[in-house]
Design a protein around this nucleic acid. Structure first.
Length: 925
RNA sequence: GGGCUCGUAGAUCAGUGGUAGAUCGCUUCCUUCGCAAGGAAGAGGCCCUGGGUUCAAAUCCCAGCGAGUCCA
């Protein structure tokens, strides 16, 4: 990394009289204005100097600090950008949550494919780092949710052969200006800039790298200035700290991160960051939990906080270890200190978790068992447990709402609704789990054994019960629990980590020389016949790929299947069975060859295309209708169009009721009836985003400078598909079914136009058929079906009754039966051709009269039931076994009541005749 | 996206291939001035659906539907 040393010799440092110093404590190099300075200033080389002694002129609230930062950079020629959602998986598939402001611009902007929304820009980006979840509240400075204030500049080298190859050109500013801006900001806020140190700390991450500077003031790292300018390259000449080699890129990006919470904290000098950023919430929670401290106690708490802040603590284990040292230093008992501090730590965490949830739910994340939804669920459940532990009894939705209000979210009702639903789900899970644990605990308490680890793992992995909870409940029932230290590792080992990565072989090279195909289907979406020239033909395994200069054939994409049809010359016609796009070149897969340079007429299967267009526009309409009916949080989670039906997956926190589905249908069809125009436009993406916001990207974020927008009434989406001209062209929309494809994702299966009629007819036919069978009007089917079902059940019971009566009667009349004496009891051997239920009833009746019953039946197959009264030394199971063997089958059962049979009905009579002999043998045995 | 668990009376759950059970709730009766409660009797089950294995499936296998949970 010393290779990057030169990178830090900034003109700005020279002009301002900075010196480069090696920290006597940690050996890192840093830049300072103070010639006397020997240490870098970052803990553990130094301690916090601002607790009780704020480092800025004025105190700022979170909102004030945010505004101060953004307006400072606005005043210095940066454009202010609205923050992106915290759910980063809405525009990239490599991460779930937004963890830094630069995430907003990866990968399309940083790679130069897409222009930034402004250049340079400034933003305060809400971020969530789940990896800090255990530290929150304990270390005094970790928060799971935070805002990363930032300014970014996107530069491209000026000596490029083709400056137009990237979406931004030239240099906006680079290292000197970046440090200067940071310095100026600190100065303006009244920081003593001679105390500020700039530590050299090269940055590596995600395949990129570059020099970076940590900005330290009074012991606190306030900002990191990253100069992203290198990429991983096996032939690169710079080997960096991750052991990989890197080389310089054509583009270079200023990536800064200023922790809003830390700046606010610095301005206030409170013992912990939490008191600085949401004081009113901390106060509320303390009050609600009934926490109060004497002056002496709060003094102690404050000192402990300061001490733990000064220790360079990065995770919980360290906190626990350090607690002893802190207690010793303060001269108090460890247990006493813990009792004092722990409830506060929980309250800090609750405040932080509320804020995290406000961000997540406010940005449209719906709790579920997958992806970001799962993370939201984890946070909520953890928050609930913390509240219970510390004795906060305010409803969770109220706590989250306090933060949502502060953060200015407008969908607060939905957020509350989601939280309530989710808390209720958790309550049910806990209840279900507790019952399970209680049963287990009682069982093991009786055996005086501890609950085994296997059961603990299953309780957690399959039923969501934490080992702690198990221990708690078990203790109430007198059972022990030994939680192994490597519990979570054991859980992990139950999950096989075989993720087969499917390597994609790209042979796109062959299309490299071809021009991009003109996408004429966008010019006239209705047109199904056109002329074109064959540019090239590639032979394929089972056909040919024909490339034209332009086409009306829509290639598969955006959930819309490809068009089919034909291509004809004067001599020949070939079928187009599939259409794909690769790197801008559209391939028509045909069953026969066409000559290069030939003029062809393309004809698209118009019915199919019309149906697909109707379904595509209908997808937008159904999504829009669902949002109207269910709430603003409704977002597309996936979609697939088809000819007969299509489906739209939306994120929602509950199952859809029949009424909701009907309402969605109503709203959708009202839009169809209104016959509004469906229009497309190709605005610059920045304008589109500025006007319509991030919700444009229901189906993913497309690359490029201009994006295609489809307007259907107020609904606007970025979309590449083909659409009908007016909503009336759809005809009708029928929602056929809904299913829960995951927790938190509802699938709406619907049909539009002709397919809607067909679908309706299908269901109607089923109803008519049922009505016909029941011989009633369709309207009366439910009522009649119920009546029939009830009658059928009644008859079942009646039959059972009668069977019993019949059995008793049979037992009293043994005219056609053979009676055999078997020791002290009489055996009745009888053939009754009836089903097994009846045999059983009859056998029971004989037994009640003190007789052994050996009954046979020979309808479809041979069946036996043998029943023996108590105290008679005959094993029914053995008898049945012998009998069944004679009819080629088997049987068995308990000693007093057995059954069996076999396929050979003809042998039944012989078997029954042998029964007396078998009984005697069995008795003797 | 993957793993695991579950689906039986109105509710909660037993039931490891051989006659479907318990507790609570419900109905009726008894006890009581009444209530809490107690006693007695009773009603209430396509054992999620569809295939398969078997003489025999609530039970074993496969698929589907529904629910829960852990992980990325």
């Amino acid at each position: 990394m010393s290779d990057l040393e030169e990178e830090y010799r900034l003109e700005y440092f020279r002009e301002e009289g900075f010196e480069r110093v090696e920290c006597v404590s940690c050996g890192n190099h840093f830049w300072t204005r103070d010639p006397e300075r020997e240490v870098c200033g970052e803990p553990p080389c130094a301690t916090y100097d601002f607790i009780g002694d704020p480092g800025f002129d004025e105190e700022f609230t979170l909102a004030e600090m945010r505004e101060a930062f953004l307006s400072f950079f606005e005043d210095h020629d940066h454009e202010r950008i609205e923050p992106y959602p915290v759910a980063a998986n809405r525009w990239r598939d490599d991460v779930l949550l937004t963890q830094a402001s630069i995430y907003d611009f990866q990968p399309l902007v940083t790679s130069g494919q897409t222009p930034p929304p402004a250049n340079p820009l400034t933003i305060s980006q809400p971020c969530i780092r789940m990896q800090d979840i255990d530290n929150v509240g304990k270390t005094g400075r970790h928060t799971m949710a935070f805002e990363m204030m930032a300014h970014h500049a996107f530069n491209a080298r000026e000596d490029l052969d083709d400056p137009g190859q990237y979406a931004f050109e030239g240099e906006v500013y680079w290292k000197d200006r970046t440090v200067e801006l940071c310095d100026e900001l600190l100065d303006e806020l009244g920081a003593d800039i001679t105390e500020v140190t700039y530590i050299e700390d090269p940055w590596v991450g995600g395949g990129n790298a570059g020099p970076a500077i940590e900005v330290i003031y009074k012991g606190l790292e306030l900002a990191t200035l990253v100069f992203m300018c290198m990429e991983q390259d096996p032939d690169g000449e710079y080997e960096l700290k991750d052991g990989n080699t890197y080389s310089y890129m054509d583009t270079y990006v200023v990536d800064t991160g200023y922790g809003l919470e830390r700046w606010t904290w610095m301005s206030q000098g409170t013992p912990t960051v939490y008191e600085a950023i949401y004081p009113e919430m901390i106060a509320f929670l303390k009050d609600n939990a009934g926490l109060s401290y004497t002056d002496e106690e709060s003094d102690l708490v404050g000192q402990a906080a300061r001490l733990s802040g000064n220790l360079d603590i990065d995770d919980v284990d360290d906190v626990e270890a350090a607690r002893g040292d802190i207690a010793a230093e303060l001269g108090v008992d460890v247990a006493e200190l813990r009792d004092l501090v722990e409830p506060l730590e929980h309250i800090y965490a609750v405040a932080d978790h509320s804020r995290t949830l406000a961000y997540m739910l406010g940005d449209g994340i719906v709790p579920s068992n997958v992806a970001t939804g799962y993370l939201a669920r984890m946070v909520l459940r953890r928050m609930k447990r913390l509240c219970d532990t510390v004795g906060v009894d305010a409803p969770l939705d109220e706590l989250v709402d306090m933060q949502a209000e502060r953060l200015g979210y407008e969908n607060r009702d939905t957020i509350r609704d989601i939280v309530r639903t989710e808390v209720e789900k958790y309550r049910e899970t806990l209840e279900r789990g507790s019952r399970r644990v209680e049963d287990l605990a009682e069982e093991y308490a009786e055996r005086e054994a501890p609950i085994p680890t296997d059961d603990l793992i299953e309780l957690y992995d399959s039923h969501g019960i934490q080992p702690d909870t198990v221990a708690e409940i078990a203790a109430d029932h007198g059972a022990d629990v030994a939680v192994p230290d490597d519990f979570y590792a054991l859980v992990a080992s139950r999950h096989d980590e075989e993720v087969a990565a499917t390597a994609q072989s790209g042979d796109e090279d062959r299309f490299e020389d071809l021009p991009e195909t003109e996408k004429r289907y966008y010019d006239d979406q209705e047109r199904t016949q056109f002329e074109a020239v064959v540019l090239d033909v590639f032979e394929h395994d089972d056909g040919y790929d024909v490339v034209l200069d332009g086409t009306h054939f829509y290639p598969e994409g955006g959930g819309q299947p490809a068009d089919t049809g034909t291509l004809s010359t004067d001599e020949t016609t070939v079928d187009v069975t599939d259409v794909q796009e690769e790197g801008g070149v559209i391939l028509h897969r045909t069953d026969d060859e066409l000559g290069k340079g030939e003029f062809v007429t393309g004809r698209i299967d118009a019915d199919r295309r019309r149906q697909l267009m109707a379904h595509h526009t209908a997808t937008h309409i159904v999504g829009h209708a669902a949002r109207e009916v269910l709430g603003e949080h409704i977002r597309q989670a996936g979609a697939q169009k088809g000819v007969d039906s299509s489906r739209l997956d939306v994120r929602h926190y509950d199952r859809l009721s029949r009424e909701e589905v009907e309402q969605i249908e109503h709203v959708a069809n009202a839009l169809v009836t209104a016959n509004v125009q469906v229009s497309q436009e190709w605005p610059h993406r920045n304008e589109a985003e500025a006007e319509h916001g991030f919700d444009l990207y229901q189906g993913g974020v497309p690359p490029g400078e201009n994006i295609r927008l489809i307007h259907v009434a107020e609904d606007v989406q970025a979309c590449g598909g083909t659409h009908v001209a007016r909503t009336g062209d759809i005809g009708a929309i029928k929602i056929r079914s809904t299913e829960r494809v995951q927790d938190g994702v509802e699938r709406l299966v619907f049909a539009a136009g002709e397919a809607a009629i067909r679908a309706t007819q299908e269901t109607e036919n089923a109803l008519y058929e049922a009505a016909d069978i029941l011989d009633v009007d369709p309207q009366n089917v439910p009522e009649t079906a119920e009546r029939f079902f009830e009658a059928w059940k009644d008859r079942g019971k009646r039959i059972e009754d009668l069977e019993e009566q019949l059995a008793t009667a049979r037992a009293g009349n043994t005219d056609d039966a053979t009676e055999v004496d078997v020791g002290e009891a009489t055996a009745v051997v009888q053939r009754i051709d009836a089903d097994v239920d009846e045999l059983r009833a009859t056998a029971s009746a004989f037994v009640e009269e003190g007789q052994i019953a050996v009954l046979g039946s020979g309808t479809d197959s041979a069946q036996f039931v043998v029943a023996v009264p108590d105290g008679v030394g005959v094993n029914a199971g053995e008898v049945v076994g012998e009998l069944a063997a004679q009819v080629g089958g088997g049987g068995g059962g308990p000693a007093d009541f057995a059954q069996g049979g076999g396929p050979d009905v003809d042998a039944l009579e012989d078997a029954l005749e042998a029964a007396p002999e078998i009984l005697r043998q069995v008795r003797n045995a």
